[in-house]
Amino acid sequence: TTQFTVHSPEQAEQWKEYAKQKGLEVHVQKKNGTWHVTIH
C-alpha cells in the first residue's frame, strides 16, 4: 500500500487515472484542504 498527500484535486485525479491504468485500487480522502491518496 502506498499512501501520500497531494494538495490539489487535479493531482488526486492524475493518481486515480494512473491507478486505473495499472489495475490498482485507489482511495482518495479529502481532509483539511489536502487529499490523502492511498493506492492498494
Results as ranks from 00 to 15, higher is better:
T1H: 09
T1G: 09
T1P: 09
T1K: 11
T1Q: 09
T2D: 06
T2W: 15
T2N: 07
Q3F: 10
Q3I: 12
Q3T: 14
Q3R: 12
F4L: 08
F4P: 02
F4E: 02
F4D: 02
T5Q: 10
T5I: 14
T5M: 10
T5K: 08
T5W: 11
V6F: 05
V6E: 02
V6N: 01
V6Q: 01
V6D: 01
V6R: 00
H7Y: 14
H7N: 13
H7M: 11
H7S: 13
S8L: 06
S8N: 07
S8V: 03
P9I: 15
P9D: 12
P9G: 10
E10S: 06
Q11R: 08
Q11T: 07
Q11G: 05
Q11V: 12
A12D: 01
A12G: 03
A12F: 05
A12H: 02
A12Q: 02
A12W: 06
A12R: 02
A12V: 15
E13H: 08
E13Q: 11
Q14H: 12
Q14N: 07
Q14S: 09
Q14Y: 15
Q14K: 13
Q14R: 13
Q14T: 07
W15G: 01
W15S: 01
W15L: 10
W15P: 00
W15K: 01
K16H: 05
K16Q: 10
K16M: 13
K16V: 15
K16C: 06
E17W: 08
E17Q: 11
E17V: 08
E17P: 00
E17K: 08
Y18V: 04
Y18G: 01
Y18Q: 03
Y18K: 03
Y18S: 03
Y18C: 07
Y18W: 15
A19M: 04
A19I: 03
A19R: 01
A19F: 13
A19V: 03
A19W: 06
K20P: 02
K20Q: 11
K20W: 07
K20D: 06
Q21F: 08
Q21G: 09
Q21R: 12
Q21N: 12
Q21E: 12
K22M: 15
K22E: 08
K22R: 12
K22V: 10
G23P: 04
G23V: 02
G23S: 04
G23W: 02
G23T: 02
L24G: 02
L24D: 02
L24Q: 04
L24T: 03
L24R: 03
L24K: 04
E25D: 09
E25G: 07
E25T: 12
E25L: 12
E25A: 11
E25W: 10
V26H: 03
V26K: 00
V26I: 15
H27G: 04
H27I: 12
H27R: 08
H27A: 07
H27C: 07
V28R: 00
V28K: 00
V28Q: 00
V28W: 03
V28Y: 03
V28S: 02
Q29N: 09
Q29K: 10
Q29E: 15
Q29D: 09
Q29S: 11
K30L: 15
K30I: 14
K30E: 15
K31S: 10
K31H: 12
K31I: 15
K31N: 10
N32F: 06
N32G: 12
N32P: 02
N32V: 03
N32K: 06
N32S: 05
G33W: 03
G33P: 01
G33L: 04
G33T: 04
T34D: 08
T34I: 15
T34Q: 13
T34S: 13
W35M: 02
W35I: 05
W35P: 01
H36L: 15
H36I: 15
H36A: 06
H36T: 14
V37R: 00
V37M: 03
V37A: 01
V37F: 04
V37K: 00
T38G: 01
T38I: 12
T38C: 05
T38W: 07
T38H: 05
I39M: 06
I39K: 00
I39S: 00
I39E: 00
I39R: 00
I39V: 05
H40C: 06
H40N: 08
H40K: 11
H40S: 13
H40G: 11
H40A: 10
